[in-house]
Write a protein that binds this DNA or RNA. Structure first.
Lengths: 101, 101
DNA sequence: CTGAAACATTCATAGTATTGAATTTAGATT
DNA sequence: AATCTAAATTCAATACTATGAATGTTTCAG
């Protein structure tokens, strides 16, 4: 890992960290890791109320980390930048024991 | 990677993301990855002024991510929680090409 | 003790983020 | 059209973060 490589990237990388710096957003990305899910599914799985959930999803969408697809009255979200999962997995390893998968 | 594992850890993990959500802090951790360094060394390597550097180091120390050791008038910092480096490396991979080391 | 070097701290201000409450839009159903 | 459900938006209050300017502390040299 090279520091001088990181210097020009540090601004963008820090932005990503800011996007991940909320428990609910982190959990959403974690839950979307494997497969796309509807807002309702995410709410049930994570126990998050409607308004906050929508707010966090909007933020993640604005930051380009997730993408949405509508199907009837439901909206399905999916990860838009897979490399984000590497970071989430590193966190999982750090906080939930070292299993990498 | 398991979502229910992450639910109780999400608060702590988000805190870590907040700690990393500043370009200078990110670079400091990156630069301390391999070895401990003095404040002066860090300043020179990263091109950061005295006060901001001290402020970021204080913040990282308050968050428990680095530890300090004094030697004469110099203070040397080192990574206090190695698992942080996994996250930094994931970032490096995401933003600087896929090399993991 | 005095001064210089290396770090740390304080303070004020401006910018961002979080949260809850209320409201609104979009699509489906009757 | 009326209405129900799912999701999105707005708004206001509060709290957090970043930044620069000024100042304080610790250690060593003389």
């Amino acid at each position: 890992m090279n520091v001088s490589d990181m210097i020009p990237a540090s601004e963008q990388a820090a932005e990503l960290m800011r996007a991940l710096s909320h428990p609910q957003r982190l959990l959403v990305l974690c839950a979307l890791g494997a497969e796309e899910k509807s807002v309702a599914q995410l709410r049930e799985e994570l126990g998050i109320e409607q308004v906050p959930m929508s707010q966090q999803l909007m933020r993640l969408r604005a930051d380009g980390l997730v993408a949405a697809r509508r199907e009837g009255t439901s909206v399905f979200y999916r990860i838009a930048r897979p490399e984000v999962l590497d970071v989430v997995e590193a966190l999982h390893g750090a906080f939930c024991g070292k299993a990498k998968a």
